[in-house]
Amino acid sequence: MALLDIRDLHVTFLSTGKEAVRGVDLTMEPGQRLGLVGESGSGKTVTAMALSGLIERWNVNMTGQVLFEGRDLLACSRSQLRAVQGKDIGVVFQEPMTSLNPLMKVGRQVEEVLKIHTDLSAGQRRARALEAMEQVGLRSPERTYEKYPHQLSGGQRQRAVIASAMVIRPKLLICDEPTTALDVTVQAQILSLLRSISEEFGVAIFLISHDLSVVRRLCESVCVMYKGAIVERGDTDRVFNDPRDEYTRRLIAAIPKRKRHE
């Protein structure tokens, strides 16, 4: 069974009447790394929010199906959804500056998901958190555990966020522009971290980016989104080297030459 199977998803905002997602179909197998690219406003984040359950339901009209391990998340109640959120689906946002609680110790935030979904003891949670922090390459996890977010660099924070999502070993990690706010070298580190996590633990990664070259470094397949619909999909290298859709061609042309040959 596919891990994730989105069928004919439509999302319309009631407040503005805008149809942000217009009939998206996509499938992800366990452990697969799939990229979603498109320009700003094409509906990437809305798609991710719809499948993570973050969308404010009173403000949208959603039709279609989001099947996660065969279960339709759109038909789930909020509490049914909560059982899946965090535990099976983790999310990493674009902005590491605001995605951590400024007043909570980093270690506590890494543990948070364990507190919500497991009944591990405090000591066990701490051990798991330290282990996860080590796995994402945070040096001296013991000390980082006691720090507050403002004491970490942007790259370290993003690692901490990834640790907080990974500590419970979700099956799917949604990353919405996880490297956009970071500088180039840190970007590369985070991407290779995501790759090694995915390979080591078999977690599927749904990577959202406006930058096809970022997707190419991490994902074997890609979907290109334009105005709320998927206009092209396939093997990342194939899409990159032999784009069939006019919009995809323009997207590739927009990548600086230097990056194209990386």
């Binding site: 359950g53 973050l54 959120q85 689906i89 946002f93 605001t98 995605s99 948070e112």
Partner: peptide, 16 residues
């Protein structure tokens, strides 16, 4: 702010 969205996405309840 994202950290609240993050907590929701971890499945934290409203009161928490």
């Amino acid at each position: 702010l994202d950290y609240v969205a993050g907590a929701r996405l971890m499945g934290a309840g409203d009161m928490r």
